[in-house]
Design a protein around this nucleic acid. Structure first.
Length: 540
DNA sequence: GAGAATGAAAC
DNA sequence: GTTTCATTCTC
């Protein structure tokens, strides 16, 4: 990792004397944030524990109840004690560091906490996961991007707190093995299940799936709480009637074909029942008879498989340098222009391009690629660029006018925008809202901290600012000579730490070799903050 | 490089 | 056990 010398007291405490990232690590005392439940403008729920800049959110649906939410990266025991939270936490070492949550996990947590699905409707978390998973797939892009953004922030915060932490799957496998009794085959429950049981199990699964789909659809329609409960009850009642009718039909059939295989199979009823329920549901859904008058534009589950998010935004901020970024923009610009305004970083091998960040999705390449096939990638890429504080011209609806006043950078991830702007507003015309990156202005991803955003000034706002390092005379064959490598700089608490860089160029991964190269090239280089302030020296 | 495995939350 | 996704491991 590349660091700037002596500016982050938090990180200074972290020792890594063995050269290996620790599996567990507890460098920081516990921290508790106090904030209000947020309400995304799209859905009625969104109490996200990881976003500490949450503030008061205007909602006609939910009251603004102050919530004490534990630090998301706090040790597990700190999660206990809240009146709303019962203790089902895994027993873990006090120094255990959980993984940063991904967008879905954040969404799921928020969903559970918001109690949109009453306990009466569904209390089993496995089933809830199914429902939430189906619902997640129907989320509009804008809403999903909010969660993606929160995941990026959570990831950045996790990185800030535990810079040396690395995900080590299997590290606990040994401990698990000790607990488990007997070989895996001994625990297999279905190994001796007969055809009858399997058929029943399949029927039950279909039935459960149908119910999950119904609940998810009702949620998509906007039904929550008591409304949802009523709607589910109605569906279940109608289901019973359908079943009664079908049973009658079955009895007639059985009488008609007495001695048939159907009547000799004692438990086939369960199968018939389950399949009928599901088929009835699908038929009615496909016919639209239940939803004919529903103007809700969102896709229903579970058919609404959405390929729009194949490239997660967080992939652009990978901590690991071992795996290449999955996002691979085509055709890097042959010669990205540099901006001479930054004496920010000087060296033989590198220069900094801050204000200029040439679109990797060039209209000069295949226009159809740019406009159609790559549209989603391009969009995500531009969102990422916006997060990185770069000027972009083609804004997503998430890029909203800043609420911070004139002269303040308009950032799609401006916490004020995120929290207060109406998502229902039409997207602004592109030219009028082109983002600017005035030097010295805080930009990029605003980090987490125990700061009252409603009263904090921009100067007090911590941020992660990115800088684009343009590699000059790049000799590593795996990197294009003009690949720009954005570097994430943490400016939390007045300190600075360069975390690392991600593959933002032509999709080629940053290999350890090239990382070494960059790091050594930056070693000893003096960084001058664009907005003023004391210089820092890169320490490798 | 592809696919498997793991684990993040929650009960 | 269940979801999605990020990350690492293994072949």
């Amino acid at each position: 990792m590349l660091t700037l010398q002596g500016h982050d007291p938090l990180l200074d405490d972290v020792d890594d004397d063995d050269g290996m990232p620790p599996l567990v690590d507890n460098p920081n005392p516990s921290m508790t944030f106090t904030f209000f439940t947020d309400m995304t403008p799209i859905t009625a729920f969104s109490a996200d524990p990881t976003v500490a800049f949450e503030t008061v959110w205007d909602s006609p649906i939910r009251p603004e109840i102050p919530l004490e939410v534990a630090d998301p990266f706090e040790r597990q025991p700190a999660y206990n004690g809240g009146p709303e939270r019962t203790s089902h936490n895994k027993k873990r070492d006090a120094s255990y560091i959980p993984r940063p949550p991904n967008a879905f996990i954040l969404f799921r947590s928020s969903f559970i906490k918001s109690q949109q699905v009453p306990e009466k409707v569904e209390g089993n978390h496995s089933t809830l996961s199914k429902i939430i998973g189906k619902y997640w797939k129907t989320l509009p892009r804008e809403e999903r991007e909010v969660w993606e953004a929160k995941a990026v922030v959570a990831q950045a915060e996790h990185r800030r707190r535990y810079p040396d932490w690395r995900f080590r799957p299997g590290a606990n496998a040994l401990a698990k093995l000790k607990v488990k009794d007997g070989p895996p085959t001994a625990r297999r429950r279905t190994s001796h299940t007969g055809r009858k049981d399997r058929a029943e199990s399949t029927a039950r699964k279909k039935k459960d799936d149908a119910r999950c789909a119904i609940i998810a659809d009702l949620l998509v329609e906007g039904k929550t709480g008591v409304d949802l409960e009523d709607a589910v009850r109605k569906w279940e009642d109608s289901k019973k009637n359908t079943m009664a009718d079908s049973n009658e039909a079955r009895l007639i059939q059985e009488r008609k074909f007495d001695g048939d295989e159907a009547s000799t199979e004692p438990n086939k009823e369960g199968v018939v029942r389950g399949e009928m329920l599901y088929d009835n549901y699908l038929t009615s859904r496909n016919n639209g008879d239940q939803y004919r008058d529903n103007p809700h534009p969102r896709s229903r589950t579970p058919d609404a498989v959405d390929n729009r998010f194949k490239i997660p935004l967080t992939a652009m901020f990978r901590r690991s340098l071992s795996a290449p970024a999955s996002h691979s923009p085509p055709e890097p610009q042959p010669s990205p222009p540099t901006n001479a305004c930054h004496d920010f970083l000087e060296g033989t091998f590198v220069s900094i391009s801050y204000e200029t960040f040439e679109p990797q999705f060039s209209s000069s390449s295949d226009p159809s690629l740019y406009n159609c096939a790559m549209d989603e990638q391009r969009h995500q890429y531009e969102v990422a660029r916006a997060m990185l504080g770069e000027p972009i011209s083609d804004l997503s609806p998430l890029v909203l006018p800043s609420t911070l006043g004139e002269g303040v950078p308009r950032r799609w991830n401006d916490p004020h925008n995120l929290l207060k702007a109406s998502m229902g507003a039409p997207p602004p015309p592109s030219p009028a809202y082109t983002l600017s990156s005035p030097l010295g202005q805080p930009s990029a991803v605003y980090g987490l901290m125990d700061l009252d955003v409603s009263t904090a000034s921009l100067d007090e706002m911590p941020c992660y600012r990115s800088y684009n390092v343009l590699m000059k005379d790049w000799s590593d064959s795996c990197i294009s000579p003009h690949t720009q490598l954005p570097v994430l700089v943490n400016e939390f608490g007045g300190g600075q730490t360069v975390y690392d860089w991600y593959s933002g160029g032509n999709g080629e991964g940053i290999t350890p070799t090239s990382t070494e190269y960059v790091a050594s090239a930056l070693d000893g280089v003096e960084l001058v903050r664009v907005g003023g302030g004391s210089p820092a020296t890169v320490k490798y």
